[in-house]
């Protein structure tokens, strides 16, 4: 099995995000970065499939040079090698990311390409669909359970949908996006960290891949969410309903 996993470098969800004075980017200095948590679940799933059926797990990332840290973390979890496509400061929208991933996926070849259902920084959730379209392969999103069907080149993917679970059978090569409950990612071990140091990370630029770097999306502005106001006690149900209707305007 040839397994590709796409991981994105995102700010630590625990970190306090501040908007830069220019109003359309965030302060990244001294910000801690991690692997997008959903992508980490995808890495874990790839490792489990490999442990069962053998093969190779290659980690891909599109981002600044520092994203090598996140690729390295995935290698410490047990992935075999990495590919980093460097954007070097340029803004990469989901379209650019999908096209870059498609190029690398074509170079590498694959049976299953996994990624998280969305990245927790921008929450677009667009890449998977675009990538499947470009590559002309099926995709199953929000995976809750993934199994390889016998000897066949097919995957059984159970998805979480509103009101229940849906089971899909899709042929390989294919793309799967991981949902929260797919698995619990393992922790990197000390020997894993030491081995990761010696594993290969191939670094290429978007230009070298021949990917058009002009984004179709533009960030107009970023705002911090309004500060939460303190609550207040109301005297009666009538007052509560009136407040919800007239002031909060939610009913």
């Amino acid at each position: 099995m040839k397994l590709l996993v796409a991981v994105k470098r995102v700010p630590d969800p625990e970190a306090k995000i501040r908007v830069k004075p220019d109003g359309n980017s965030i302060v990244t200095e001294q910000l801690k970065f991690v692997i997008n948590p959903f992508d980490e679940i995808a890495v874990e799933e790839a490792l489990r499939i490999k442990e069962k059926l053998g093969g190779e797990v290659v980690v891909l990332s599109i981002g600044p040079s520092e994203a090598a840290e996140q690729v390295r973390t995935a290698l410490a979890m047990g992935a075999d090698r990495g590919v980093l496509v460097k954007t070097d400061g340029a803004y990469a929208d989901p379209g650019i990311i999908a096209r870059a991933l498609a190029e690398v996926a074509k170079q590498e070849g694959f049976d299953v390409l996994l990624m998280g259902k969305q990245a927790v920084d921008t929450d677009y959730g667009q890449t998977c669909g675009m990538l499947a379209q470009i590559l002309g392969v099926p995709c199953a999103s929000f995976a809750y359970k993934v199994e390889v069907e016998g000897e066949s080149k097919r995957l059984v993917v159970v998805r979480e949908v509103d009101g229940g679970l849906e089971t899909k059978l899709i042929g390989m090569p294919c793309i799967v996006t991981a949902d929260l409950r797919l698995n619990e990612p393992r922790y990197a071990s000390l020997p894993g960290i030491m081995k990761a140091k010696k594993k290969e990370i191939r670094q290429i630029s978007l230009e070298e891949l021949g990917v058009e770097v002009t984004p179709k999306l533009r960030v107009e502005s970023l705002e911090e969410p309004p500060k939460r106001q303190g609550g207040r006690k109301v005297g009666s149900v009538e007052e509560l309903v009136r407040a919800l209707h007239d002031e909060a305007k939610v009913i």
Binding site: E69, T73, A76, Y187, A188, I193, M194
Partner: peptide, 9 residues
């Protein structure tokens, strides 16, 4: 770098 990664983990 490695020491730093060890502490992160």
């Amino acid at each position: 770098d490695v020491a730093s990664m060890v502490l992160d983990e």
